[in-house]
């Protein structure tokens, strides 16, 4: 019993320590005032690595998810003779939920894990330490551009995801299953509210962008600098990010539905 208490307490303390350190880490990353002229090329480079290279997975999965939602929706709606509502169903589920959440999950797997592994390996090979010894702060040279690239890319990718998923739903619903295109688009237009659906979806993906990238860069920076340590951190980065995204999604949705 006592042993159990000690272990739990120890784990709890270590958890608090971890969270605290990640908070300080984020503060220092944001606090570093970047020199615009020198930081901008670094940011561009990371936007390419984090954002542009994630495009293929986002495009392919968004199309398929939109197509599946269209197909499932059509068969359910056809039971009630309401297939003309398909546009509304696809658009709302994608813009409100699937767009931000699935993008964040894919992003954590594609870009987050790469960020963690890259920073972790730089730490293991003393590259971060040698930067420090040269008087260059790795937080602004390495971490800051990667963090901002993630924060900027996520909403853009989510918007792209939603647009392509709706097009995927249109392909299946209208082109294949023969829903009337007029009612498909019309119903969508009349039921999707810009402020309540589109903007709220964007806010979600913005929050997810911060959280997923923060977890990824912190796990890399904080990893045990060995092969096994990097492997563990990379796994943790994806697992923590995915769970946090799903949990936060529930909280954010509750706040938004509650008329926030």
């Amino acid at each position: 019993m006592r042993n159990w208490l000690t272990t739990t307490g120890d784990k709890g303390l270590r958890y608090c320590d971890h969270v605290g350190r990640s908070g300080i880490f984020l503060f220092h990353t944001l606090y570093r005032c970047p020199r615009p002229v020198k930081s901008f090329p670094l940011l561009l480079e990371q936007l390419y690595a984090v954002g542009v290279l994630s495009l293929s997975i986002i495009i392919v999965s968004s199309l398929f998810i939109g197509m599946v939602v269209g197909l499932q929706g059509y068969h359910t709606l056809s039971r009630f003779g309401a297939t003309q509502q398909l546009g509304q169903l696809v658009a709302l589920s994608v813009v409100r939920e699937l767009g931000p959440v699935v993008t964040a999950l894919l992003f954590a797997g594609r870009a987050g894990s790469a960020l963690t592994a890259e920073i972790g390996l730089m730490k293991a090979t003393d590259q971060l330490a040698s930067m420090e010894m040269m008087g260059v702060d790795p937080l602004w040279r390495v971490v800051s551009p990667r963090f901002w690239a993630g924060v900027i890319s996520m909403p853009v990718l989510a918007v792209l995801f939603s647009a392509l998923a709706i097009w995927g739903g249109y392909l299946v619903g209208v082109k294949w299953l023969g829903v009337d295109p007029g009612s498909f688009w019309n119903n969508m237009q009349s039921s999707v509210d810009f402020r309540l659906d589109v903007v709220n979806g964007l806010i979600k993906s913005g929050v997810f962008g911060v959280v997923v990238t923060w977890i990824a860069v912190f796990q890399g920076y904080d990893c045990v600098p060995t092969a096994a340590g990097i492997a563990r951190s990379t796994t943790r980065s994806v697992v923590y990010a995915s769970l946090t995204v799903l949990g936060l999604d529930f909280i954010l949705t509750t706040m938004m539905m509650g008329g926030w």
Partner: peptide, 13 residues
């Protein structure tokens, strides 16, 4: 102060 220091790591880094 570190700009006045050079550091050669064992691995080169």
């Amino acid at each position: 102060v570190r700009r006045e220091m050079g550091f050669l790591f064992q691995t080169g880094a």
